[in-house]
Structure formats: C-alpha cells, structure tokens
C-alpha cells in the first residue's frame, strides 16, 4: 500500500515535471530590459535637445545616469495575475533616489540582496559600529514592482528606475 502511494507520488512528480517542461517552451510574459541614457544632441535647427539612446550605443562614464526600463507584455491567452518584477541594482551602479516608477504597481526596495523587501522608510542598515541607521537610496540592492491588477492578454506596460555609474 505504502509502495503504491509512493509510486503515485513519483508519478505526480513526473506529471508536474512534464507540465513544467511544457511551460518552458513559452511563458505568458515577454520581458524586455532596456538600459538607456539621456544624451544632449544638437538637432537640425542647431538647438540642443535631450535624446534617449541605448546605453550600449552611448558614451557612458562614471557619474552618468542610466535609465533601466523593464517592459512586460502578456503574450499568453489568459490574464496574468500577481505579477512581480524584480530587478537587482546592477553592480557598479547606485540607485537614484525617487527614480523608480511603475504605473499600477507597489514599489518596494531591498538592502539585503533581495531577501527582504520593504517601503523606503522601513529599511535599515547596520553601520560600521553595529548600530542601525536608516537605509539610503544608494544602499538599495534590489527593486520590486508588484502589479496591483491583472495583465490582460495582449496588454503591456513598463516599469523603470535610474541608477548612476560609480
């Protein structure tokens, strides 16, 4: 009896694994990450204007600000719910205060590499003397956007933040 139960459990695992394998082919969300920077260019009229270009195709040096945008699109046939986008602040970069945006999302931050998240005023760091202090924006290691509403099939949107190159 016990053996049968075990066998059933194994079968179930195999079944779910097969489901997962099927899902691997295509998910319901297409996720795109853009790294861009604002550069000042002179237009045909000789006026200076700000142009947003891919960071990879711009001259970027320490001190420059990069705008990270994550685009999502429901490419499936069913509505997507409880979507959570997580973006670590890249290495060599510091989060720019108040720069995270995302319409219809709850934005939270982490200072421990994404283990725990919280609102900006709830995060603390431990200073060199072992005393707790409020976390600064430059301490943030991860940003998390939690969608408040379902994403309908075909619907898309984006969230973004800015970070400065150290």
């Amino acid at each position: 009896m016990r053996a049968i139960r075990k066998a059933l459990a194994v079968l179930a695992v195999v079944f779910f694994a097969a489901m997962a394998a099927h899902a691997e082919e295509k998910g319901s969300i297409k996720l795109t990450s853009l790294a861009e920077t604002d550069t000042i260019v002179v237009n045909a009229k000789g006026e200076k204007e700000v142009k947003r270009v891919e960071a990879a195709r711009a001259k970027v040096v320490p001190g420059d600000v990069v705008i990270y945008t994550t685009l999502y699109e429901n490419v499936g046939k069913a509505p997507v719910t409880d979507a959570v986008i997580n973006n670590p602040v890249p290495e060599h970069m510091l989060y720019v205060d108040n720069s995270a945006e995302g319409k219809g999302t709850r934005i939270e931050f982490s200072v421990d590499g994404g283990k725990t998240f919280g609102a900006t005023n709830t995060l603390t760091m431990v200073d060199v003397k072992g005393k707790a202090r409020p976390a600064r924006p430059t301490d943030y290691t991860n940003i998390r956007w939690t969608m408040e509403k379902a994403i309908a099939p075909g619907a898309s949107g984006g969230v973004s933040f800015k970070a400065k190159i150290e």
Binding site: L31, S33, P62, Y68, T70, A78, V80, I85, N86, I165
Partner: peptide, 18 residues
C-alpha cells in the same frame, strides 16, 4: 570610479500567476 572597460549587466525577472 568604475574602471573603463567594465561591462555593466542588468537582468530583470518576473514572477506571475495564470
């Protein structure tokens, strides 16, 4: 300053339910 020639990488992830 971050040394020139450093590649800075970013990867976002999404978790969701259907």
């Amino acid at each position: 300053n971050t040394a020139s020639g450093t590649t800075i990488s970013n990867l976002a992830t999404i978790n969701y339910k259907v």
